Simulated assay, not measured.
Amino acid sequence: MKLNIAIYSIILFLSASCSNQKYEIKDYGFPKKENDSLKVSLKLSEFENYGLLVDRIREITCNDSFPKMVFKKNKVIRNIYPIENCEPLIYDPEGKHYVTFRGGKPYKASTTIEIDTDSLRSKLKDDFSYYRNSNPVKNPESYLVIIESERQDNVDGIEDFLSKLTQEFDKLKADVELNISFWEVVPFLPPPPAMENEKHTG
Rank of each mutant, 00 (worst) to 15 (best):
E84Q: 11
N4D: 07
V70D: 01
H200Q: 12
I57Q: 01
K33P: 03
E196M: 14
S163C: 06
T100N: 02
I5G: 07
I146N: 00
F30Q: 09
P93H: 01
F128Y: 08
I113Y: 10
Q152N: 14
E168R: 11
R58L: 09
L44N: 05
Y8E: 11
M69H: 05
V176W: 03
N133K: 07
I77D: 04
T117Q: 03
Y131L: 10
N63C: 04
F188D: 04
L89R: 10
S9Q: 06
P93T: 04
V76A: 04
S163Y: 14
V70P: 04
I80C: 03
E87I: 11
S149I: 01
R56Q: 12
E46Q: 12
S15M: 14
N179W: 02
T117R: 13
N35Y: 10
C18S: 11
L172Y: 09
K26L: 14
D64K: 05
F101G: 00
K68F: 04
K105I: 11
V185F: 05
L165V: 08
L52D: 09
G157A: 06
K26C: 06
A16G: 15
F169W: 01
S142M: 06
N135K: 10
L42A: 13
T61E: 14
F128H: 01
Y130H: 10
E48D: 12
D64G: 05
L3H: 11
P193Q: 12
I147P: 00
A174I: 05
N139D: 12
A109D: 08
E196F: 05
D55A: 15
V145F: 02
D127A: 04
I11M: 12
K39Y: 05
K72W: 08
V145P: 00
S134I: 07
E94W: 08
N35M: 10
Y50F: 14
R132N: 11
I5W: 12
I25T: 13
P140N: 06
V155I: 14
S142G: 06
L53W: 00
M69D: 02
S37P: 00
C62F: 08
F47K: 06
D153Q: 11
Y107S: 02
K68A: 05
F182Q: 01
Y143V: 01
P88K: 03
L12P: 02
E159M: 07
F30H: 08
I83C: 02
D27R: 10
P31Y: 14
